[in-house]
Design a protein around this nucleic acid. Structure first.
Length: 226
DNA sequence: GTCTGATCATGT
DNA sequence: ACATGATCAGAC
């Protein structure tokens, strides 16, 4: 029997539900959801995210949509260390490599996903057994004008390179806050892209990720506010 | 293959 | 020590 909760019908309801998860251990939450409790995340990298989706009633699926489309809210876990600092970059979405001419920041998938995020900090310390790690304090976030401008600037820089057939020259060092890195099942996954001379080439699929400096600033903005 | 959910683990 | 590039699992 799968554990399901109804999709929240308001942001308030979602936040109330999320707040109830604060301080609960992964073992407790896995038991409630009838989920197998892995020993670590080596072969279950998305386990915490999937589990929290179930507890919050996120519309499951592999569609490139927000987790709560009716509320316009995206759910993201954020693994942090003992000092509350992000331990990992944050995957946003796949980077489009083909037919990019009609794309702009305003209609981009990155902007859509990041326009309103329910961040859930989670204990990411590898030294702590997964079952004993706990959920942190969730919070709803919308980018400030400054943050959005910075993201737009990075996004446009990346998309210019992709459109110019330079996807293979993009490294994770580019972009101040938004980077592009491989995103694939393994080294054999290939997809089409535009090459240096305008020809079709096969490349590793790429994804947009938020650098830790960006998510660190969000955490500071929220938890160290006056 | 596409997308979702991400973290791993090696190079520097 | 830490970020980059690589990889893991599952739905479709």
């Amino acid at each position: 029997m799968r554990y399901t909760v109804p999709t929240p019908t308001s942001v308030d309801e979602l936040l109330q539900r999320a707040n109830r998860l604060t301080g609960q251990s992964f073992a407790q939450l896995a038991k409630i959801a009838n989920l197998h409790m892995p020993n670590d995340l080596k072969k279950d990298k998305g386990w915490v995210g999937m589990m929290l989706e179930q507890h919050l009633g996120a519309s499951a699926g592999s569609k490139p949509l927000q987790d709560f489309p009716d509320l316009g809210v995206e759910l993201k876990t954020l693994p942090v260390d003992e000092q509350g600092q992000p331990l990992e970059t944050t995957f946003v979405c796949v980077a489009p490599l083909l037919n990019t001419s009609g794309l702009n920041w305003l209609n981009s998938n990155v902007r859509n996903k990041l326009s309103c995020v329910l961040w859930i900090p989670i204990d990411g310390r590898r030294a702590v057994p997964l079952a004993k790690r706990v959920v942190g304090q969730p919070f709803l976030w919308r980018p400030t004008n400054e943050q959005e401008q910075a993201l737009q600037s990075d996004w446009e820089e990346h998309m210019d390179r992709i459109a110019l057939g330079e996807v293979e020259s993009i490294t994770a060092r580019q972009g101040e806050f938004l980077q592009i890195r491989p995103k694939a099942a393994d080294g054999s996954a290939l997809t089409e892209a535009v090459g240096p001379n305008g020809q079709m080439i096969q490349v590793r699929p790429r994804g947009f990720y938020l650098k830790k400096t960006f998510t660190r600033a969000i955490l500071e903005q929220v938890f160290n506010a006056v």
